[in-house]
Amino acid sequence: MKLSDIIVGIAMALLAVMLSYLMVYGGLGPIASYNIRPLAAAFLNNTYNPWQKIYSALSPEAVTAIVWDYRGLDTYFETSVLFIAIVGLVALFRGANIVQGISSKGLSIIVKTSTKIIVPLILVAGASLAFHGHLSPGGGFQGGSFMTVATALLAVAFSIEFLQQKRLSLNTLLAVRCVGLLAIAIVSVYLLINAVLLGGYAYIFQNMQRLLFSPNSLVAVGISQYSMPYWFLDRPLGGTLFFFNLSESIAVIGGLTLGAVLLLLRENELKTVIGGEEHE
């Protein structure tokens, strides 16, 4: 018997023991203590609570409410981190661009036709995930990634030259990304600007009415009455949550498609970029 066999056997046994531990005790650590549980109860009570709008995000989906409302600033910086990664990629590939006529054939006619039929369906399914982010699991990032599958399929099946012919060049994709991020920024300060212009008070990332505090104490001095629309036709809109999800999906489809296209660039297009200079 070899040593590797013994190690694999012990690893399998450990995995089985750990999985059964997980199933029996419901977690790797101790169950949350009683003094933490009220936090979860508070989120569940206030996520959709039309009678207590000052604490509520008015969205039935607690995860989205936490991600885009209760810790909205955090999520904004997460999005910015992804944007910085895209900026790094663009900087690395600076000067490279799609050149027409290198190998524009793409895959076979069967793959092309099937892709053609399935692309609009993928896009509309991704859009529905982004629209319903505040009502059901899903959201802006998920919807945007879903839609990126369609553009990536187009890039592979039809070649990236096809994307450029359809006016989806690298600069356009970067512009789409920037428009999405700008829309997130505008939504996050919309109520604040509104309040400043009307002479009132509001917070950044404000969604519904919120309690106003005096700057030096924790005593509520009133209520900021400004609030985003929270109802559309027959379902809750979740105020900023819907607009954040929509903007995020636009930002994600632009950014991820840009990344995919950059990584699909051919050797001829990259020679000047990655070749560098001749050193003696």
Binding site: P120, L121, L123, V124, A125, A127, S128, F131, H132, L135, F232, L233, D234, R235, L237
Partner: peptide, 30 residues
């Protein structure tokens, strides 16, 4: 019609909210 029907089947919801937004998205994609 193809895109909108697929959208309705995918979301499995007939609320005014999702029908209205799906109409806009399908029209854009069309």
């Amino acid at each position: 019609l193809l895109i909108y029907t697929f959208y309705i089947v995918f979301t499995a919801s007939l609320t005014g909210f999702s029908l209205a937004l799906g109409f806009i998205a399908s029209a854009l994609l069309t």
